[in-house]
Amino acid sequence: MVTLPLEGLRVVDFTQALSGPYCTLLLGDFGADVIKVERAGTGDDSRRWGPPFVGDTAAYFLSVNRNKRSIALDLKNEDDRERAVELTTTADVVVENWRPGTADRLGLGHEEMRALNPRLVYCSISGFGETSQRPGYDQVVQGTSGWMSITGAPDGSPTKSGLPIADIASGMFATQAILASLVRRDRTDEGAYIDLAMQDSLVSMLTYQAGTYFATGQSPRRNGNQHATLAPYGTFDTADGQVNISVGNDRQWHSLCEAIGSPDLAADARFATNSDRVANTASLRTELESKLTLLTTGATLAAADLAGVPAGAIHDLEEVLTSRDLEDRGMILTSSHSRLGELQSLGSPWHIDGASSTARLAPPDLGQHTDEIIDELHRRRAAVLSSAK
């Protein structure tokens, strides 16, 4: 049996919604013991973000909260706050995504917690960083970071991503920073404080789009499903649907033209090089689609495969989530919930020594593990007192 990389590490999770829970989901999948501290009575807001619901719990919540134990605490109650403080003294990692300043007001800020537990890695996720009081939900940050300005049809309105990319990206970057800090802790025996902003996460992912601005001083425009610097690279019509084709160099372009029976396109001086094709994108699209609309989607994909050109169909989620590819890669996880029955969720994409993520624990009911976790604290306290005698 493969040992998961974070087995034996404890994560105390003061997060809700998506950015923080996605981070702690990844840590839980890596084997950490994740203790999700939820507000007594109401819990994580996303428990109610629906429809759809499975029983009385939102599918949204269920999608990102496996491999966690839930304890329900009222952090304005002194006894419960002390339990939360004691939990952090047992932790390797704390993750919170309250509005900046909230943790300090609750007596759970990073300075106070690291004074009690110097080896603690403490991560704060916020919309705009710990120096800003601005609240930041995903769509707000997609707008402020520039992402929406480069997403959508050229003649349409700025458009958000189909997924909450600011939440997911910040959760992933938080996980990276936590893992890097744990590696450093192994060398120095010192913890860390991580200040991670959703805005910074999306800005850091602008990469070549930001490079375009730095090179030209001009904000990139929306390109819809096409590419600003490669052609043909985008979505194209076929006789019975659409495909994505991504030509990355002139050799691939010539091979594609041969494979679809149109060597004349490769010989056309307007399309000789990638720079020529980008300069003549509209004409290229018209000429290429006049050939592809004589072929079915299947025939187009077969031709692209023969040419060694990356191409693919455009699937809906039913096609994706029921595909053999996901089954073969172990990407659909199943867990058994005591009230809700069998639940499915998406696994993490990594494979380490042949093993990948598993659903060790179903997403918890609110406070499901409160008594269990408090009992662990009592036993730990008793052991500390006994060793001190």
Rank of each mutant, 00 (worst) to 15 (best):
R81M: 04
G20S: 00
G191F: 07
A72I: 05
L256F: 03
T15V: 02
H337K: 08
Q242S: 12
T151G: 01
N249G: 03
V309L: 02
E38H: 02
E190K: 13
L163G: 10
A302F: 10
D29F: 10
T216W: 08
D44I: 05
R187L: 12
T207N: 12
V384Y: 12
M205D: 06
G31A: 03
H315E: 12
W350A: 12
L343I: 07
L326M: 06
D268L: 13
A58N: 06
E190D: 14
G31L: 04
G156D: 03
T207I: 11
A279P: 12
R339H: 15
F173P: 04
Q242V: 11
S132L: 04
I314G: 00
S126W: 02
G101I: 03
D79A: 10
H254T: 15
S356Y: 08
C23D: 04
G8C: 04
V183D: 09
D195L: 11
S255V: 06
S46W: 09
S204V: 07
Q133L: 12
I165D: 04
D74R: 08
A302D: 15
A304C: 15
P310C: 04
S145F: 09
Q252V: 12
Q252C: 03
L333M: 04
G298R: 14
N77F: 09
R221V: 15
Y208G: 10
